[in-house]
């Protein structure tokens, strides 16, 4: 049996373990949250190194992409560097392939993304592939990176402006402690009422809300039937979205035992299946494997 573990800076309340069979191979997939405790995450990674087949880093990104430029989040890199023997990934490779494909799939097979659909991405620099794909299929996009991460009421409406601002800001911002940029630990269980009051209208004006689930959840006001495109959702999250008034949930990663896993977990699973050094894996490798596994987004009506 192959063992894949996701070590997350997120809440340990979301920990879980499942066994699945993929391409004739048994997998034990587990997620272990460290409640925002960075040192505990480093310790856990060191303990797992060499003992499991692949590790995913959750609740934090290591690499952000904007256009052809890759930005490295220093705190994420420190976690990655704690692992010496086992392949370790943060999900960014899969975001750039699977999530792009998800948008094309929804455009082709559903009526959720017709041209002109108003899409809010709460944060786009952590999902640049998806952002480009939304713009590419003719959606009217709003990237909320400045609004929700920095509290600046400035919606970005083009991929080129997103890239331009990323080039100015990310080389430095990625050096800040990660908790200043992204909700970690207990913050993931609460909502930011002040920002909801101030910026909730961006959600209400959109037809589709996409991006990292913790960010989507943290700033979500009362909705009126919007589609949510995300992953890492649990059964409780589905209840939360239903209560908020979301119309439909699309998860980009497959569901195992009632929950969709984070991209970091799924990328770690693919790495374990590919049995190639991470640095030699190409987007084409991921795409081929995803097709062989027949991964498709899950569309769940909530009304």
């Amino acid at each position: 049996m192959k063992r894949v573990v996701s070590v997350s800076l997120g809440s340990s309340r979301r920990d879980h373990r499942v066994e699945v069979e993929l391409m004739g191979e048994r997998f034990e997939i587990s997620r272990r949250g460290t409640d925002g405790d960075f040192e505990r995450a480093v310790q856990l990674l060191k303990e797992l190194d060499g003992k499991v087949d692949a590790i995913g880093l959750g609740g934090i990104d290591v690499y952000l992409y904007a256009g052809k430029t890759r930005y490295v989040i220093q705190d994420g890199k420190k976690l990655m560097d704690a692992v010496r023997k086992t392949p370790v990934v943060d999900g960014s490779g899969l975001k750039n392939t699977l999530e792009r494909e998800t948008v094309y799939y929804l455009r082709e097979h559903t009526d959720l993304l017709s041209p002109g659909t108003r899409v809010l991405m709460v944060s786009a620099v952590d999902r640049f592939g998806m952002a480009e794909a939304f713009a590419g299929v003719g959606c009217e996009v709003t990237f909320g990176d400045l609004i929700f991460a920095a509290g600046i009421p400035y919606p970005i409406h083009t991929v080129s402006e997103l890239e331009e601002l990323a080039a100015k800001l990310l080389p430095e911002m990625t050096r800040l402690p990660f908790h200043m940029l992204y909700p970690t630990g207990k913050k993931q269980e609460t909502q930011d009422e002040e920002k909801i009051k101030k910026f909730g209208h961006y959600y209400q004006e959109a037809q589709v809300i996409a991006g990292d689930y913790h960010l989507v959840r943290r700033y979500m006001p009362r909705l009126n039937g919007q589609t949510i495109i995300t992953n890492t959702t649990t059964a409780d999250d589905v209840t939360f979205l239903r209560e908020k008034g979301a119309g439909c949930l699309v998860t980009t990663t497959p569901e195992f035992e009632g929950r969709s896993f984070g991209t970091n977990v799924m990328e770690a699973v693919l790495v374990a299946l590919l049995q190639k050094p991470v640095e030699e894996i190409t987007p084409r490798d991921y795409l081929d494997l995803l097709r062989r596994l027949d991964f498709k987004p899950r569309v769940l009506p909530l009304r």
Binding site: L146, A149, A150, K168, L169, E172, M173, L176, M180
Partner: peptide, 12 residues
């Protein structure tokens, strides 16, 4: 974060 952001927008 916002003050840092302003500085980067001017000089970054």
């Amino acid at each position: 974060v916002r003050l840092d952001f302003i500085s980067l927008m001017i000089w970054g």
